[in-house]
Design a protein around this nucleic acid. Structure first.
Lengths: 109, 109
DNA sequence: TATATAGGGCACCATAAGGTTTCATAAGAG
DNA sequence: CTCTTATGAAACCTTATGGTGCCCTATATA
């Protein structure tokens, strides 16, 4: 839930690769570790960290635990970036603040 | 230069706070460490990591070394995020049109 | 010149992070 | 019931990380 958990989760290249993998298809621990040159417990640890950052959700089917990507959690990163991104990208932050302004004036009136 | 250096740089909460500090004003090492409950060498190490990720540049003036934020380096993060952001971008634009519809019906009535 | 100030650099320490091996358990398949 | 497969979990090792204290050099300034 903490923002730090997400920043930490995406800091590791292996975990970013796992995210990339799960983006195309939900997978179990074994299927994921097949893509890496490391043992299953190592991958399982990475998955736990990703889960702690709410970047993946786990769905147990029988004896399998399928890991699903939860991309919405990445929005915190986007939000943090928006404080600085106006430097190169005015478009998105303008859209965001426009919406927020409209929302606040709406609720006020 | 490496993408990993940037992800690693923003993974630490202290470094993100330093980024936030430098966003408002370029500062020297001493001025920065005055904001934290840690010694100057510790802050200097963080600065070195930020520099390695090209997130700050250093300008030497006399005996002072002023650290400037280089927000453009954060674009790599934005680029990486863009692979997944469509998930919530759809939501956001939907929200936008919803609001605009509400606003137009409001002004019409 | 003497002295205070800004900062670099090194040695050291404790803990966290990433990995392995090994063992245990739970659920399908024969 | 037995065997295989999917996974969790603990113990352990090695290296990275974040921090400290201490000492050095360079530049201002009284």
């Amino acid at each position: 839930m903490s923002e730090q958990a997400i920043f930490q989760a995406i800091a590791d290249p292996t975990r970013r690769e796992i995210i990339s993998l799960l983006a195309s298809k939900p997978l179990g621990v074994n299927a994921i570790s097949a893509h890496f040159d490391m043992t299953r417990p190592a991958v399982a640890k990475h998955l736990k960290i990703l889960e702690r950052g709410n970047l993946i959700s786990v769905q147990a089917i029988g004896r399998e635990r399928i890991n699903h990507l939860e991309p919405l959690a990445l929005k915190s990163i986007e939000d943090w970036l928006s404080h600085y991104s106006h430097f190169w990208d005015v478009k998105l932050s303008t859209l965001k603040s426009t919406i927020e302004n409209k929302l606040s004036t709406e609720t006020k009136s």
